[in-house]
């Protein structure tokens, strides 16, 4: 009897929980960490939706997409947050994502027309270096200099893939030649962003591939003004981070509401100083002063998702061939 009572109790408890709808959001690891935007956005949306938001952190953007593809239509995820435009065409091809009603008046350097994915933040890739040193102002100048750089592997990291696209966007067919010239500047290649950035902070290399907004972290959170992003005359490639709703979601309205919340003033205000990227919609008060100190490129570069998709394999092969020598 005791067991029966216990079992019934459990069953009732489960049902009570089931009455609160649950929104499952898959995102990359650093988004959901204590220091990322995850916790504040979760609390903010839960306050207005009467639902339970569950973030699941998974490696980075590429790992995220693989995961959704592995799960297919059986996925428990309602929203995937943290892919970027380089992965967007691939993500669409899976047919796992559904158009969303969420939209906003974006403050992006580019026009946004896609109806499946919404951009929630963005940044410029850049090499970050120590203030006070002489820095090259283009890839060609970098190749001619003896500065050492650490980059990420495009096969396992989204910034690494972004760099491939950056070189391709600037130099087109000359990309192999540029990689060839750069190969003696590349100290090493790491599997992910954090290893590369760690090597740079430890003084292993002169520069590291990161974002123009990285120095803002050091200024705002650490009061450290010794890091700066190096402006390149030829322009900077952008990373636009996107989120989308899964077609198989059992909470489609809630998912749309979440995406809309993500684009709202509250969430957008949280992103800059937790994710260290620019908000997709500028909050009314603007950004913290530290962001004014960072470089703003004159020219923004971005390949369309379709171009990025079609150039991916070729660009990777060129990169591998040049650096394997």
């Amino acid at each position: 009897m005791k067991h029966l009572a216990l079992a019934t109790g459990c069953l009732l408890a489960t049902q009570a929980v089931a009455e609160t709808p649950v929104l499952n959001v898959y995102t990359y690891e650093s988004f959901t960490s204590e220091w990322g935007p995850g916790p504040q956005i979760e609390a903010g949306f839960e306050a207005e939706c009467g639902c339970d938001v569950v973030f699941t952190g998974l490696g980075d953007g590429a790992a995220l997409l693989s995961r959704v593809r592995l799960e297919g239509e059986r996925s428990e995820a309602d929203v995937v947050l943290g892919l970027d435009t380089s992965l967007m065409a691939q993500a669409k091809e899976t047919g796992l994502f559904a158009p969303t009603s969420a939209s906003a008046d974006y403050d992006l350097p580019i026009a946004w027309t896609d109806e499946t994915f919404v951009p929630f933040d963005w940044g410029y890739f850049a090499f970050v270096a120590n203030v006070g040193e002489d820095h090259p102002s283009s890839f060609e100048a970098l190749a001619a200099s003896d500065a050492s750089i650490v980059i990420q592997d495009p096969r396992s990291s989204t910034p690494g893939l972004g760099l491939l696209m950056w070189v391709k966007a600037v130099y087109g067919d000359r990309a192999p030649e540029i990689w060839d010239a750069l190969s003696d500047n590349i100290l090493t290649v790491t599997p992910g962003w954090s290893e590369a950035y760690g090597l740079f902070l430890d003084g292993e290399a002169d520069m590291v591939l990161s974002y123009t907004t990285s120095p803002a972290y050091h200024i705002i959170a650490e009061g450290d003004e010794t890091k700066e992003a190096v402006p390149f005359d030829e322009g900077h490639y952008m990373q636009v981070e996107i989120a989308g709703k899964l077609a198989a979601s059992d909470q489609p309205e809630l998912a749309d509401a979440f995406l809309q919340y993500l684009l709202g003033a509250e969430a957008q205000g949280v992103l800059p100083e937790t994710n260290w990227m620019y908000p997709a919609v500028m909050p009314e008060g603007g950004l913290a002063a530290g962001f004014n100190q960072v470089v703003t490129p004159d020219k923004a570069l971005l390949l369309s998702p379709e171009e990025a998709q079609s150039l991916r394999d070729e660009a990777l092969a060129e990169w591998q061939a040049a650096l394997a020598r």
Binding site: A62, P154, R155, I186, L187, T188, P191, Q320, A324
Partner: peptide, 23 residues
């Protein structure tokens, strides 16, 4: 192997598996 090997020269099978799977 990747970090200390200095780049794609030092691609191991395990990294090739990562590429096949993630990329």
């Amino acid at each position: 192997a990747l970090i200390l090997g200095g780049g794609p020269r030092a691609t191991t099978l395990e990294l090739a598996i990562y590429q096949a799977f993630l990329f």
